[in-house]
Design a protein around this nucleic acid. Sequence first.
DNA 1: CAGCAACTCGTTAACGTTACCGAAGGTGCT
DNA 2: AGCACCTTCGGTAACGTTAACGAGTTGCTG
Lengths: 357, 357
Amino acid sequence: MTMEEKTENKKIGIKEIAKLANVSIATVDRVLNNRKDVSEATRAKVQAIIKESNYQPNLYARALSVKNNLSFAVLIPKTSSQTGYWDLCLKGIKQGIQEFSTFGITIDIFLYDQEDVKTFIKMSEDVLSRNFNAVVIAPIFISETIVFVEECKKRKIESIFVNSDIKGCSSLGYIGPDLYSTGRLAANLTSYLVPAKSKLLILNIARGLQNYAYLNTKIEGYTSYLNNLNKGFEISNIDIPSNNYDEIAIDLLRHIGEFNPDLIFVTNSRVSVVGRFFNEFKHIKKPHIIGFDFLTENVEFLSNGMIDFLICQRPDKQGYLALDYLYRHFLLKNEKENFKPMPIDILTIENYLFYEN
Amino acid sequence: MTMEEKTENKKIGIKEIAKLANVSIATVDRVLNNRKDVSEATRAKVQAIIKESNYQPNLYARALSVKNNLSFAVLIPKTSSQTGYWDLCLKGIKQGIQEFSTFGITIDIFLYDQEDVKTFIKMSEDVLSRNFNAVVIAPIFISETIVFVEECKKRKIESIFVNSDIKGCSSLGYIGPDLYSTGRLAANLTSYLVPAKSKLLILNIARGLQNYAYLNTKIEGYTSYLNNLNKGFEISNIDIPSNNYDEIAIDLLRHIGEFNPDLIFVTNSRVSVVGRFFNEFKHIKKPHIIGFDFLTENVEFLSNGMIDFLICQRPDKQGYLALDYLYRHFLLKNEKENFKPMPIDILTIENYLFYEN
DNA sequence: CAGCAACTCGTTAACGTTACCGAAGGTGCT
DNA sequence: AGCACCTTCGGTAACGTTAACGAGTTGCTG
């Protein structure tokens, strides 16, 4: 049976509604925007017509008409020499700025040093010294972030987290992946890469590790999955609190020499240094490698087969979505959506080429 | 070093340009849209000012002002009882309809039966009998599609393909994944799932297989990757040209009994029937299974561990992007973009939950 | 009952762009 | 001179929505 679907598009406007309800367009506008100055009787009548006519507001007309004075702040780490991760997030933010500036929204970016809590405090004070309507935060420094958000709440500044979450802290929630699940996914892929009783090395590379609570969430997901499998894996967990390649390399040499893992799971985007390591010390048997994030330096080692899997979360989309959420919250007055965690992507040597499209 | 970035957003409009150039806004509009009725002298003057002021047109105002009369046709298979794949594509199409109807674009959907070429011919004639500006086509029936597109070209109707491509045929190109690469990716994952010298079964399940040229592209990618690996895999390729589960099951029983594969690669979205098969015949040793597409019935077998990997391509996004491309082409008068293939996603039991977000 | 607040509602000018209409000036022809 | 015609340009009404302003009504106070 063949079939043709017709799309009926008699877009109804505020004007027609007004005519149908025998009121002026201003009254319809008042009803639509839940403003006062309209009697219950007419409100009900207009609302009925709105509902049955399936009215959809013309966002373009609204964008044109409204002269907003909204301003948002973005408070995230600056890109360090060690990882380009935050550049990607910033890219999405800038796309958002481009798009939302048409609506009269101004957005200011504050970058702090994720290895220096003082810079975070300084930047957060800068944010408070101005008068923003909302702030996007990447909560690296947990306790300081909590203090900051509390102050925001007092001043009626909305807050939203990206990249990682502090449960119940921000006023508008969290946009990012479910970190526990990323750990489980890494474990799932691990189970495909190595046979039972293999030796697995969990590797945390970052200075100031005490701040990176979200790494532990990933590790919990990873180990819980593997323990359930009951395949007799031998798991070792190592911290290398450094950003210096030589320091990391020598530490790796020590641990790998004595443990000799079949697979290394790098818990953040620093996986490329492990790739570099095995590129340099070719006499050491290369284990399987799993890591995070679509960074140029990581992709290099994915493309030459050094890294097996990269687990990714589209940080640019994350940054964009944060602004988009604020836009919807303030401009479209959307009821608070309960956003779901972002997709978790798997990249291999065979599909990374198409990822950024 | 801490740092704050400022975004300067002095959006300049057509009115200011007119003032700067000492002309009316009508003239500026004429210059902007390359219309005639403006002298070379003033055109140059206005163009200079436009360039140096970095003018960006306000798309919302344009959308509001322009009363378009564009109409697009969408010509894709209807969802069969066998697979919900095309429903997803349709979902994206409908989202596009929703969004672009604001611009005065009307979109009509023509669904044909992918098992009956006559319905395709009938629908394509229906399309031609009306006067569309462009048509989105899923080219299942290769030769008939070529005939149809040629006729479209004669009538100045633009065409764009989704899901699979006929190289150089459509006037506006192709939106979808690189099919050869999806085959290679399946092979890549295969190499992780099974050891050397394993027995691999490539399974094509579809009626009228001669029409599904794109399945062969996937198979070429798959086998070429595996041959390069040189791991002594034993590969068998089987067609089951049926839509009836019992027929498929009995055929599977025959082949699996004699071949006893370690892994089955189902080349399209029909992978769930294989899951159902091994669910029913529990005495047969279940091989690893790789298949395509995020369909409810497939996800069911992904979630219970029957299927190891699903390779996906967001068909809804595909449908949406096709309409979005037409919108840009006609409305924004974008120069012809050379679009890149869509991302290829990998779904496992651990990340499928977040995919639709 | 004057006065004034509170409530309800309509009129209208914007927002930036497009497109129609016609004015002004020039050229060529009778 | 008169007329037709063309080129070049400006004026302006839309598009759908918002918000400032003010007009009309009611109810209450002193």
